[in-house]
């Protein structure tokens, strides 16, 4: 019946007004256009960029420097380093965050000390430290803790209590050292992010879940973490993007299996500097663009049940039902 009252009255003429002028906007637009043109002009006409060196052919019969075998290999290394150190960093970060929030004082202090240490030490220093850790031990393996000392106690001189061991320089050299340095440092930052996420969730949520008989693990996995993800994902995206770039630090471990190291090698061989830097820049841009697109979809997944879009969609559906399907349309 409310329908009738709205349709009976004649609809007034649509408003046709002269819009407000914004001269400031036009001036800004002109300035930006000039700057953009200057930049493009620089890119296209300054042949010191040596675009063909970057894209097409950097030496007789070879591909552009971006696509040569060692550089692509380095790119693969950078991606693997990013994925593995972030995977370890996130997993360990969650564990440390949970320890930090535990009522057990010992667990939470250990977690606090961990984040304190690894946030205080610069990643570059950490990478160098891990690259040289094998100076401390000759062999690393699984076995009894304090095996040698226990052996001495029983009068055994060559007993070391090791079940399995390998040379330290084989285990923590190069890639693994770099990965560990990045992963352990990342875990400290991720722990803080996850903790903030968990603490942002109303305690009533965990309480309601516990009252339904859910275990602490279930509450965390099913109720708290999925909601905390909304808070955790955006800064984690930042962290991953920062990590892509920080992988270049492990060139000092040294790790040869990495993009920046490989490109600087090309520089050293060919004495070409700027185009190589530009090539690196382009690769990092591409990697981070892909990550940002991925982040968009992940964020959208974890915002289920929140936000304007979900509500708008539901409103539209309700209106469509009320109007008997006469209104159609999509919410962007």
């Amino acid at each position: 019946m409310s329908d009738d009252t709205t349709t009976e009255r004649a609809r007034p003429e649509a408003i046709k007004a002269v819009p407000v002028r914004h001269p400031g906007r036009w001036i800004a637009l002109a300035v930006i256009a000039v700057l953009a043109a200057m930049f493009l002009h620089l890119l296209l006409t300054n042949d010191r960029f040596r675009w063909s060196f970057i894209f097409l052919e950097y030496q007789e019969g070879k591909r552009g420097v971006m696509f040569t075998e060692p550089v692509l290999e380095g790119l693969r290394g950078t991606i693997m380093l990013t994925i593995s150190s972030m995977a370890i960093g996130i997993a360990l970060g969650i564990v440390i965050a949970i320890m930090r929030l535990s009522p057990n004082k010992i667990l939470s202090s250990v977690a606090f000390l961990y984040t304190w240490f690894f946030r205080a030490v610069p990643r570059l220093v950490l990478a160098l430290l891990f690259g040289n850790l094998n100076i401390l031990w000759e062999r690393i393996g699984f076995g009894l803790p304090f095996g040698t000392q226990i052996g001495k106690l029983f009068g055994l001189d060559n007993f070391d209590g090791q079940f399995y061991s390998i040379k330290a320089s084989d285990l923590i050299a190069g890639f693994v050292a770099g990965m560990l340095a990045l992963a352990l440092s990342e875990a400290a930052y991720m722990a803080e992010i996850v903790r903030a996420g968990i603490q942002s969730i109303d305690t009533g949520q965990a309480e309601a879940a516990v009252a339904l008989g859910m275990s602490r693990g279930q509450v965390l996995r099913r109720i708290v973490l999925p909601q905390a993800m909304r808070v955790i994902v955006p800064p984690t995206g930042n962290e991953i993007i920062a990590m892509v770039k920080d992988t270049s630090l492990v060139a000092y471990v040294p790790v040869t299996f990495e993009l920046w190291f490989q490109l600087t090698q090309v520089s050293a061989r060919t004495f070409v500097v700027l185009p190589v830097i530009v090539a690196a820049l382009i690769w990092y841009l591409i990697l981070c663009t892909v990550l940002m697109i991925a982040q968009y979809f992940v964020e959208r997944h974890f915002s289920k049940g929140y936000g304007a879009t979900a509500k708008a969609k539901q409103r539209l559906r309700d209106i469509q039902v009320e109007q008997g399907g006469r209104i159609t349309g999509e919410v962007p």
Binding site: D202, G204, Q205, E207, A208, A209, V210, A211, L212, G213, M214, S215, R216, I223, P226, Q227, F302, K304, G305, Y306
Partner: peptide, 26 residues
């Protein structure tokens, strides 16, 4: 233990002042 307490809670329903529905689930 945690498990036995959870078991007891299963048969006791609770409704809160602020609903505490899980907002990320339908």
């Amino acid at each position: 233990g945690e498990k036995d307490v959870a078991k007891q809670r299963r048969s006791i329903g609770m409704v809160f002042q602020r609903f505490n529905l899980f907002p990320h689930m339908t």
